[in-house]
Design a protein around this nucleic acid. Structure first.
Lengths: 333, 333
DNA sequence: TTAATTTGTGCAATCGATTGCACAAATGCA
DNA sequence: TGCATTTGTGCAATCGATTGCACAAATTAA
């Protein structure tokens, strides 16, 4: 068995309390005692038992990650793993641990949430997506459990969140296209249960409006699931109606599908823009322009907000907006 | 504050030990007492504190995941997140929790490992890759800590591991190509510090040998990092030497790069095969044939092995071999 | 009817830390 | 020198569970 605080105390000829204080770097410990204890710690290769400490502290320093099962592109989109690394990097810095759980079954996230919080296993949560009427958010709010949402929630009041400025990001994309002379621009977007989808659509509309271009609802495909085949179908519906000079999408996967439809049916070039800048955007034919959303920084900031809250820091803000960057490639040249 | 076992005991008019026994479903509790206690539990919405339980049990039911930082394709290859979901699914079934940690710095995995194990935070580990002379494996073996390795380790003796049969998988690919009439087949493979790379190369060589085709070392590019640009460069080196009729690679990313080189330089068609069957293989031009390695099942089995070990089951085997499947697409037609 | 066994429950120690409070020794101040 | 204050350490309770052991009551056997 490995050494406990009592063993250290015995070797250093002090009490366990003193050892504890040395570890916590309490100012009331004399230099000599501190040295003695530190030597004993080294000698025994002692490491505090985190579980015992957690029990005494009523805090585990564990963050729970709720990964949505609805996101069909979990595997195709590096978004989640990027967020997860961002979270991990900040958490490490602050000595926090991360727990995750994933389920294929619909709406099982709430089960984890309850299990983790009821059993006092985690100090707080990060939700990797926020849907409309999210049961998880509801539960966490009701129980006053600390949490951060990735993606702007319905009700931003008293909720901590991180997101991009999706309105602005899409506005800029469409604005750039218009500047290049495009005036017939189609839109393929995801389910409206995500604010992100709505915001990007609004950005699109606003840009058209500002430039005095009429919004044609038949050029707008909404509520499209984030899969290539749905993007493919949506693009075909648009092409059946009219051939646009450009298409913007709210996800690279949609763009991949759309590109396929275009390549199959149309000879002339249609400008196309993805979103999220997945690593393989550059390997499309033509290489796909896309908007980098900086997912890792989203995760990093989410962890920052949550840990700040957990440590009772005076938070200067309840959210972070992470910059996006429109990466132009051949698909818009 | 939420209810503790003492509160339940008080309400049910029994001792905490009895409550504990009811929860553990001990056979020595009478039906009436059990009912009383269960009612009290419901009434108070009591949930056992996992931390306290862990302390008493000297076991946390937490599994630690060591994610390699060397894998440059962490974001590009869904391999890791697929493994992670497989692990999660089995762990949930068995009531285990999962902790992960990721660092960008070289060789920091061992730090987590030591931290997690010394502080008794996790019961065991799953290493998501195994390199040659892996410090982590060394440490875990020395300290007799339970762990499972994804990917066959150097020394399979007394180590639990899961892997595909990489030799066989590549053998079959090359065999299939030869059956189709190819005889000039190039090979682009990853670093030899991974057994997987070596096995796939051996499978390639064996298939050639069996069919009486000479092995031409100039057609073999080894030690290529798992990036598209390295694949691109490797392919160009091969093309500088000779134009093969087919190319096999040990990773889709390498294949993507190789494909690009081919498309840029050569008019004639060269058959090409990737590995790992990433979701976007199908979106290459032409759609890329690849080998599906069933990463989720690798993860699932890794968790199974580890948890079996942790629960002192008599393990019938120290490893699992997960089936692969050669998915043929246009790139080999 | 009595002794032996089984059944059901509680006591108290334990897991390995933290921390408020008490108190002796050392120091400061007049 | 004498008293007040500061400094450094230990005692013991606590966090919230689990579990070996003891033992009374109920049951069975003789």
């Amino acid at each position: 068995m490995s050494a406990t605080i009592k063993d250290v105390a015995r070797i250093a000829k002090v009490s366990p309390s003193t050892v504890s204080r040395v570890i916590a770097d309490s100012p009331r410990i004399s230099k000599e005692t501190k040295l003695k204890v530190e030597q004993a710690i080294k000698e025994l290769n002692y490491h505090p038992n985190i579980i015992a400490r957690s029990l005494a502290n009523r805090s585990t320093k564990i963050i729970g990650l709720i990964i949505p099962n609805t996101s069909e592109d979990l595997f195709k989109n590096p978004f989640f793993i990027q967020i997860m690394t961002g979270i991990s990097i900040y958490a490490q810095k602050k000595g926090y641990y991360i727990m995750y759980s994933y389920s294929k079954k619909e709406n099982e996230e709430i089960k984890f949430l309850k299990n983790y919080s009821n059993s006092k296993l985690v100090d707080g949560f990060i939700l990797l997506t926020s849907k409309k009427d999210d049961k998880c958010i509801e539960f966490l709010k009701k129980n006053n459990y600390p949490f951060v949402v990735v993606g702007r929630p319905e009700d931003t009041n008293k909720v901590l969140w991180v997101d991009n400025d999706n309105f602005k990001a899409m506005y800029e994309v469409v604005d750039t296209l218009i500047q290049k002379g495009h005036s017939s621009i189609a839109f393929i977007g995801g389910p409206k249960q995500f604010n992100m989808s709505k915001d990007r659509l609004e950005g699109y509309k606003k840009a058209l409006e500002v430039h005095g271009i009429c919004i044609d609802n038949k050029m707008i495909e909404q509520e499209v699931n984030f899969t290539e085949s749905c993007g493919f179908d949506a693009m075909n519906r648009i092409l059946n109606y009219k051939i646009p000079s450009a298409v913007v999408t709210t996800d690279d996967l949609l763009a991949f599908g759309a590109l396929k439809a275009i390549n199959e049916r149309i000879d002339q070039k249609i400008a196309i823009v993805g979103f999220n800048n997945t690593p393989l955007a550059v390997y499309q034919n033509p290489p796909l322009s896309s908007v980098d959303i900086n997912a890792e920084e989203l995760g990093y900031n989410a962890a920052k907000l949550l840990i700040g809250k957990l440590e009772n820091e005076l938070l200067s803000t309840n959210h972070y907006i992470v910059d996006t960057k429109f990466i132009e490639r051949e698909s818009t040249i």
